[in-house]
Simulated scan of single mutants.
Amino acid sequence: MRKIEFTPVASKRDRREFVDLSYRLNGSDPNWVAPLRMEAIELVTPGKNPFFEHATVHQVIARDGGRVVGRISAHIDHLAVAQPPEQGMGPGTGNWGLLEAEDEDVAHALIRHAEDWLRDQGMTRVLAPLSMSVWEEPGQLVRGHDHPPTVMMGHQPARYAQWIESSGGYSPTKRLLTYEIDITNDFPPLIQRIVAAGEKNTRIRIRKVDKSRFDEEARLILEILNDAWSDNWGFVPFTEAEIAYAGKKFRPIVFEDLIMIAEYDGEPVAFMMTLPDLNEALAPLKGRLFPFGWAKLLLWLRKPRMRTMRVPLMGVRKRLQASRTASQLAFMMIETIRHEAIRRYGATRGEFGWILEDNQGMVAIADAINGHENRAYVIYEKAL
């Protein structure tokens, strides 16, 4: 009988094996974009990723006859556990993610192992996959396998969804969507009129971020984000360490004319973050900066030209969200960035997401600017 053994990730060598497996299992997928190995290792390393400062994490490697055949991370985000249960997380909720497996038997064994560990830690419910925080790569890809993901979006084999569902007890609890937009086309006349009216309103100012005050601007954006998203399903606040970490990671791909802050009566009340699709530059590197990858990437970052822009985050302060001003500010920021993306970077395509399927406000904005759903991810739930 086949005997699968589990070994916890405890050393640098273990982490390399944990990370290397994804390259081996996904390397033949033409639409999988290999992350830089140094970043993939940093993600799963205590002391590097500040997620570990507020989470208990159990990462394991599955072996069959000594050969690595799978991996998984089971984890408890203590900030998520402290959230109100009606917002999706809450007491007793644990997670697993970073699943990779050679076959269905291995996947089932890994999921059972993660569930057993979570039960031993006192968890009564699991939401998965989350790799690892909800702010990183949540959900299992169920639509959109026919094209590469944009920067900081996950891309898992379609068979993994089947294996999760066949492992027993899992049901979809949330769908996360991305919307694709042809940004070379003008927006519909109604949206143009809304933007034009906003431009005449002296109480509204749309400005670029100031990269010379990067830390201050990053803190402002994340403060608006924590307020704007605080009632959303799955919300977990950013910590001070995570704000600093996010700023460090984003800085190389932050361009002032692609991130807007909206002010109302002089107060910053909304933001829109747009990132050039770094995956277009990363794909040919196959996860390695050496010997020549670093030079290619540096040249691209100095003068990026890309097809796609991704909007990973935008938000309006909670007190304005039910007002017409909120959608007006959103459309104004979108239109300003659309023009800059075309003029300065040669972009032709935009992608919004992820967006919760039941976030009516954001779905309405995507529909209003002729966006269409191009990728969908599922987060599953199971009682333990």
Rank of each mutant, 00 (worst) to 15 (best):
F6G: 02
A10E: 14
K12E: 15
S22Y: 09
D29F: 05
W32N: 02
M38V: 15
A40P: 08
E42Y: 14
E53L: 15
Q59C: 13
G70S: 06
A74H: 11
L79A: 15
P84D: 03
P85K: 13
E86P: 06
P91D: 13
T93P: 03
W96V: 12
D105G: 13
V106L: 08
A107C: 12
H113C: 10
W117P: 09
Q121H: 12
M132E: 08
V134C: 10
G139K: 09
R143V: 13
G144M: 04
D146G: 11
H147T: 08
H147I: 03
H147P: 02
T150L: 05
V151R: 04
V151A: 09
Q156T: 14
Y160V: 07
W163M: 04
I164C: 13
G168Q: 07
G168F: 00
G168K: 09
G169S: 00
G169K: 06
G169N: 05
P172E: 11
L177Y: 00
I183C: 03
T184H: 11
D186N: 10
D186K: 12
A196W: 02
F214D: 11
D215N: 06
E217S: 01
R219W: 11
L222A: 02
S230V: 03
V236F: 07
E242C: 11
E242G: 09
K249Q: 15
F250D: 02
L258A: 06
M260A: 13
M260Q: 12
I261C: 00
G266D: 02
E267W: 07
T274E: 09
E280Q: 10
L285D: 04
K286A: 08
R288V: 08
F290S: 14
P291R: 02
F292S: 10
G293R: 06
L297V: 05
L301Y: 01
P304F: 01
R305V: 13
R307W: 03
P312F: 05
M314V: 09
R317H: 03
R317Q: 06
K318W: 03
S323I: 07
R324W: 09
M333E: 02
H339T: 14
G346A: 11
R349L: 15
G350R: 02
G353A: 00
I355S: 04
G361Y: 00
M362R: 01
I365W: 00
G371Y: 03
I379Y: 05
K382S: 10
